[in-house]
């Protein structure tokens, strides 16, 4: 058992080392004060800026919402991927809403990322939100090149929804199944908060 722990720790150290190196590189490239780079950055920023459906922002590219997964503060983030066409997703939305309500005095942030299809935002998502107004923050992601971004959320994401990322600082858990009830979700949150 000791050895398993040792090996796991070694793996984790190696993984962390790789990550920080990548981050350093990212920092270097973004802080280069060259006019050309700044121009590129602005164009990219424009590209990542959301449009909107009602008052819900719609992102075309995963890069637009990527910072949501990288917050380094003491807030607990609960990020759930769902869609109106996904029955188990819709079933568990009330659990997230209940968390959002029950923990609003605490450093807890619930974000519901809708993966509804771009061409169905007005016909499916908008009527859904009018019928069932969500009090948690809702964003829409229509990035169609799934194989380019789902691994950035979690390598274990198979390719279906619902999935949920729950994290605070360096502690992070990925759930690739529907929560069976509110208590199951709340237990995870109680442990991490």
């Amino acid at each position: 058992m000791k050895y398993t722990t040792a090996i796991l720790l070694l793996y984790m150290v190696l993984l962390c080392a790789c990550n920080t190196e990548k981050m350093k590189m990212a920092e270097e490239t973004t802080t280069t004060p060259e006019a050309k780079n700044i121009e590129v950055a602005t164009i990219q920023e424009m590209f990542y800026l959301p449009t909107a459906i009602g008052n819900v922002p719609v992102y075309n590219s995963f890069e637009g919402i990527e910072p949501l997964f990288q917050q380094k503060n003491d807030t607990l983030y609960i990020i759930n991927f769902w869609a109106t066409w996904c029955a188990p997703c819709v079933e568990e939305l009330p659990y997230f809403e209940k968390i959002n309500e029950a923990y609003r005095e605490q450093k807890v942030k619930v974000i519901l990322v809708s993966l509804d299809f771009k061409r169905q935002l007005e016909t499916k998502l908008q009527p859904f939100l009018e019928k069932m107004p969500l009090r948690s923050q809702v964003v829409v992601l229509t990035d169609n090149k799934y194989n380019n971004w789902i691994n950035k959320v979690d390598a274990n994401w198979g390719g279906a929804i619902p999935v949920t990322v729950i994290y605070k600082g360096e502690q992070r858990q990925f759930f690739s199944d529907q929560f069976s009830d509110f208590e199951e979700l709340e237990n995870v949150i109680k442990k991490l908060i």
Partner: peptide, 8 residues
């Protein structure tokens, strides 16, 4: 190999 995106 790619990830098959869809419903479970």
């Amino acid at each position: 190999f790619t990830k098959a995106i869809g419903c479970s």
